[in-house]
């Protein structure tokens, strides 16, 4: 049976780890900056495209991955500038960048798909140390945790705190001397850099980059963040980012299990979307139900009085 097979867990955990930084990027925009950023759909394949193209051109995979991160930063920056300087709504700004990125990604790759089969990967060094069975997983875990720890630290610095405050209360932080436009641009750059990094890791992990691979990534990121929040309910940063890691991995497992149970891969997107709708809509839904309950009680009381 598949669920008794260690390989199933290993593979799914690896995939989950490759997607953690996507979720982390979405966490930064959606939860910290309070900005629904669709750039993600373009910056994920952008990271994959830049890394893949660099690697097949003979560049060191570590450098290729760093380039992918930087490319993602630029993408986020552009969304930020469109939003803050040109005053175009955040959602639309993201869509505009995402749409442009589709063309750019095709230009970078020169075709719609690049295979990285038997090409050098960022995991190679670790595989030499830890063996080919565990090398990939261990290297992914190391990369994810380095990023997590750096992010945790960063968000507690003077500068990082002002990013959190910008999402929390922009009016207030402006009166304390922060240019919130700059902070938004910076935050979007950082977030999309991480998303592109995730794209670069996933391309190397799956040995291929594809222009279509960004589709639905925003929802995947949101679902991961939300699942994480079910288990870790706090705004304390180190716990919250741990929650994001957990959420991304659990999401992958949910998907993998559904596939094994015979769900059609093409139906999974709507399942994920509905999950996100329910999770994000829960507070309103609850209020609605409570209202009904309240009305019933009130009615009873009125009846008793009569």
């Amino acid at each position: 049976m598949w669920y008794l097979n260690l390989n199933f867990y290993m593979k799914t955990l690896e995939e989950g780890m490759a997607f953690v930084l996507l979720a982390m990027g979405v966490y930064i925009t959606f939860r910290i900056l309070d900005f629904a950023d669709l750039t993600v759909e373009g910056s994920f394949p952008l990271g994959a495209a830049v890394a893949a193209k660099s690697i097949v051109s003979g560049l060191n995979p570590v450098l290729a991955t760093i380039f992918a991160f930087l490319a993602g930063c630029i993408a986020g920056m552009i969304t930020g500038i469109i939003n803050t300087r040109l005053k175009i709504a955040g959602l639309l700004a993201g869509i505009l960048t995402m749409t442009s990125l589709y063309s750019i990604n095709l230009r970078i790759m020169g075709k719609s798909q690049i295979s990285l089969f038997r090409k050098p990967r960022i995991f190679d060094g670790f595989e030499r140390i830890f063996g080919s069975d565990y090398g990939t997983l261990i290297s992914l875990i190391i990369i994810v945790f380095i990023v997590k720890i750096l992010l945790d630290f960063f968000l507690h610095t003077e500068f990082g705190m002002s990013i959190r405050a910008t999402g929390d209360n922009p009016v207030m932080i402006e009166t304390l001397g922060i240019n919130t436009d700059f902070i938004k641009i910076f935050g979007l750059a950082l977030a999309n850099g991480m998303v592109a990094l995730s794209g670069a890791l996933f391309a190397q992990y799956s040995s291929s980059a594809d222009v279509q691979m960004g589709m639905g990534m925003i929802v995947v990121g949101l679902a991961s963040v939300i699942i994480g929040e079910v288990f870790v309910r706090t705004s304390k940063i180190p716990f919250a980012t741990s929650g994001v890691i957990l959420g991304a991995v659990l999401y992958r497992f949910a998907i993998a299990v559904s596939l094994r149970l015979g769900f059609d891969a093409t139906d999974l997107k709507i399942v994920t979307a509905v999950l996100v709708i329910i999770a994000l809509g829960a507070p309103s839904l609850r209020r609605f139900l409570i209202q009904d309950e309240f009305a019933e009680k009130l009615l009873e009381e009125v009846d008793e009085d009569a």
Partner: peptide, 25 residues
């Protein structure tokens, strides 16, 4: 800032109008 702690809020105000760097707040 509602989600941030009292001391974090004070730290934000403490740096009023100054350059904010990568030192812990």
């Amino acid at each position: 800032a509602a989600e941030m702690t009292i001391e974090e809020n004070l730290s934000l105000a403490y740096m009023r109008g100054k350059r904010r760097g990568l030192k812990l707040g």
